[in-house]
Design a protein around this nucleic acid. Sequence first.
DNA 1: CCGCATCCGGGGCGATACTG
DNA 2: CAGTATCGCCCCGGATGCGG
Lengths: 212, 212
Amino acid sequence: MRSYHQYCAVAKALDVIGDRWTLLIVRELSLRGASRYTDLRRGLPGIATNLLADRLRELEQAGIVAREDAPPPVATALFSLTERGEALVPVLHELGLWGVRFMTEGPAPDDEFRSRWLAWPAETFLTDNEPDAPPLTIEFDTGDEPMLARVQDGRVQVGPGRSDSPDLRVIGDPYPVLGLLSGDLDLDEARAAGVSFEGPAAALERVRPNRS
Amino acid sequence: MRSYHQYCAVAKALDVIGDRWTLLIVRELSLRGASRYTDLRRGLPGIATNLLADRLRELEQAGIVAREDAPPPVATALFSLTERGEALVPVLHELGLWGVRFMTEGPAPDDEFRSRWLAWPAETFLTDNEPDAPPLTIEFDTGDEPMLARVQDGRVQVGPGRSDSPDLRVIGDPYPVLGLLSGDLDLDEARAAGVSFEGPAAALERVRPNRS
DNA sequence: CCGCATCCGGGGCGATACTG
DNA sequence: CAGTATCGCCCCGGATGCGG
């Protein structure tokens, strides 16, 4: 990207990650870990394939992304964040905190969604209110793949995966499920918005933030 | 800006402030408070005047910037951040923390500098290590206008201004002065890089962070 | 199928000139 | 002082091609 030519830390940061799509690629890598080109493409609906290739090259040059050749069985390139790339996670976090205000009206008609994007709001807004209670497993079915939240020892960890016997399964559209996670909706409101539960919905009270 | 059409908080944030120059305009407004068009232009070297006008319009529409007509003596428009705009300060802060790594080699040959940009690193990196000591005033002369740091009651506040009798005056190029603020340079190293002091340079020890 | 490279149309961006 | 107008240019988006 063209430099701003300003000796200021914010401008220097934007010189490197200010290009279109760049921070979203970092988001995807931070959510997915080491990823193949095609998986990144699927997680970034709307990106042109040449742009993804260009950005990955630029990010590699900037020391934000590392490209490794996967071992023979896979024989494909894997992209992952370097330490410098991981250091961008707080930037993404603050951007997300600022951006949630634009989510409360629901998705636009042509908005795409990937269930992995639930990991950030879930880990950000949920807290384990009963750290001494036994582990809890909650599955969220909102889109292309199920997400699994493990609640244990005061921590909430969220990642892709399914469970044969989760303590609770939450099924619904992204919008009301996100409202549930952020505390904007309570259980009855979520149900009215089409969210269904398999298992004791009350288990959510262990992790849900106080309604602001 | 063209939307990413992704129902994700980071993408929604970038839909609004991802355009070129946008976050730098917010930076400038957060450093200066209510500002006139021409002052913004001076604080944003390199911006085209039509782009500044466009961005201010877009920022106003997005509820980030408010335009007020100043009272008769000035009779000009003033731009300031709304509450939603001030909420972007943590984003700028994290961007700055990530971007300082690109400042440690010094400015590029054609980099511009404005002394107000010192306010962020000064308030970010300096701390009052002796909150019970009497107030301390340090003037920094690094560029277009002097900056004044007031150290008092455990706080460090930095803004434009000069003092007739500061406890200490620090004069030098932005690069070594920034090194001094961030803890990358000690007093002797800064002196070797052309920084001069009027008053007891040791007073800086009250506020300088530990060298990492 | 994966991981791009190439081509091309449109629009955002940058620089300058101009105006009330 | 505070913008508007104009005009290249290059980045971006979308489509297609293509070697491994």
